[in-house]
Amino acid sequence: MPQWWKIRRELKRLGNHLLEWPADTTNFLFGTFYYDRFLAHKKTILSGLQDTTDKRAVYLIFPKNGLQPGHFRTLDYLASKGFAVTVVSNLPLNPGQKVAVLPKCHMYIERPNYGYDFGGYRDGILSMRNDVAAIKQLVLLNDSVWFPVSSKTDWLADVDDLGVEFAGAVSNYGIPRVDPDHFRELSFDYRTDHKNFHYCSFALSLGQKIVQDPKFIEFWASFPLTNKKKRTVRRGEIGLTAWILRRGYSHAETLGVHRLAECLGKLSDPELRDVARHVIVLDDSRLKKAKANVILSIDKLSRTDLVNFVLMVAARQGTAYALAYYSVLFLGFPFLKKSPLWLDQDAAKISSLLLGALSEPAADEALMEANDLQLSK
């Protein structure tokens, strides 16, 4: 018998695409022109106090509640690694905050909030277009995460150890997706050839060969800006990763998603159950139901079932979200996404729990901000 909920979902999706097609087409064709012609002149560009180096970073911020200690911690980390930072803000800072940020950066760009993080990355990168010959490494970061939230690992040192031209903190769509009710059928086979495979844009590192590729600046100059988030993900995260793969550059990610099945399999029984209980699920009623069922019978499930359940959630939700508890507490992953604090009550509890368990100054700062985020929402 057909699964009618799937048919209804696909019909609804098709209807939405048809309704949005005229606006999406216009936006795709003219979004970048609109920004460059009518919005870009509203940017504020200030020189910071950092000297330039051959290692550059673009740090995109959306400081809705003003600059936080976590912003300065990220900037201090980048400075300690020898990076000259271009801070790009999608919201205006007050004069006092601008004074505070300028000693921490090489350049400050305040721009109209158009194009999400890739719009900000674009302005930051294009501001360096005359310097690319001198750049050996370019890092892209945004403040959708707390970083570094753990001192157990050093992300940029891990990037260097990978020895690749393009590195991310984590990837998506490398793990095969299965229906939540059929997680036992998951066969782990990490691949990078899925049409939606991408490295997440909150932390990316690009090597000298990429930055100095003549097509690199062209990619950003012609990048199709839009104020629709899903389109930005497709054109940005997925589009940039696809561009990297097409041009044959080496690539990898520091979390080691391709080793997740192996790593989860090495956990003790209590640890594995602990990880399964604390996977994060956002805005997916069927996935929430599957998690509830697993928790009810967790002591009866085999280790293989538990590993497959955790992998299924990671595949469907994104590893950076779903496995925050495991990756931060067990692996020392230095990134923690902020949005679960206001998107889901259970996810907020898990995020706050792991921050409290870290017992580090960075985590204490993040926990204070997390409490404010929960209250504000």
Score class of each variant (00 low, 15 high):
193 D>P: 04
315 A>W: 03
129 R>I: 09
130 N>H: 10
252 A>G: 15
25 T>M: 03
74 T>Q: 13
61 I>H: 01
126 L>C: 07
368 M>N: 10
57 A>D: 08
145 V>C: 14
242 A>H: 02
30 F>L: 12
336 L>Q: 15
329 L>K: 11
337 K>F: 06
8 R>G: 06
129 R>N: 11
136 K>W: 00
279 V>Y: 06
312 M>D: 03
242 A>Y: 02
92 P>G: 06
124 G>I: 03
148 P>V: 01
310 V>H: 01
10 E>F: 05
111 R>D: 04
347 A>N: 11
355 L>N: 07
134 A>Q: 14
113 N>Q: 09
161 D>H: 15
180 P>E: 12
345 Q>T: 14
189 D>F: 00
111 R>T: 05
281 V>Q: 02
144 S>Y: 00
190 Y>P: 04
263 C>R: 13
154 D>E: 09
288 K>R: 11
121 Y>P: 01
237 E>W: 04
282 L>N: 13
280 I>D: 04
128 M>S: 00
170 V>K: 00
354 L>W: 00
147 F>A: 04
362 A>E: 10
126 L>A: 09
81 K>E: 06
118 F>N: 04
269 D>E: 09
210 I>N: 12
24 D>C: 04
255 L>M: 04
369 E>A: 12
359 S>C: 05
294 V>L: 14
149 V>E: 02
212 Q>I: 08
19 L>A: 04
58 V>E: 03
360 E>F: 05
246 R>Q: 14
50 Q>P: 07
274 D>L: 13
80 S>E: 10
167 A>H: 07
138 L>D: 01
8 R>S: 08
338 K>G: 02
24 D>M: 07
125 I>C: 02
86 T>P: 07
4 W>T: 08
138 L>W: 04
133 A>V: 15
78 L>E: 02
106 H>G: 11
302 S>F: 08
239 G>Q: 08
214 P>Q: 09
291 K>H: 14
171 S>Y: 05
245 L>H: 06
225 L>R: 11
67 L>R: 07
214 P>F: 11
144 S>L: 01
232 T>L: 01
229 K>E: 01
142 N>L: 05
34 Y>H: 11
329 L>E: 06
112 P>M: 11
9 R>V: 00
90 N>P: 03
107 M>L: 14
129 R>E: 14
35 Y>H: 06
175 I>Y: 07
149 V>L: 12
17 H>W: 10
131 D>F: 11
190 Y>C: 02
91 L>W: 11
265 G>N: 12
37 R>D: 10
277 R>W: 08
135 I>L: 10
228 K>V: 15
74 T>F: 11
302 S>N: 02
278 H>N: 15
45 I>V: 15
309 F>S: 08
85 V>G: 03
344 D>G: 00
275 V>Q: 05
120 G>P: 04
217 I>C: 01
324 A>Y: 02
109 I>V: 14
160 D>Y: 05
174 G>N: 03
306 L>C: 07
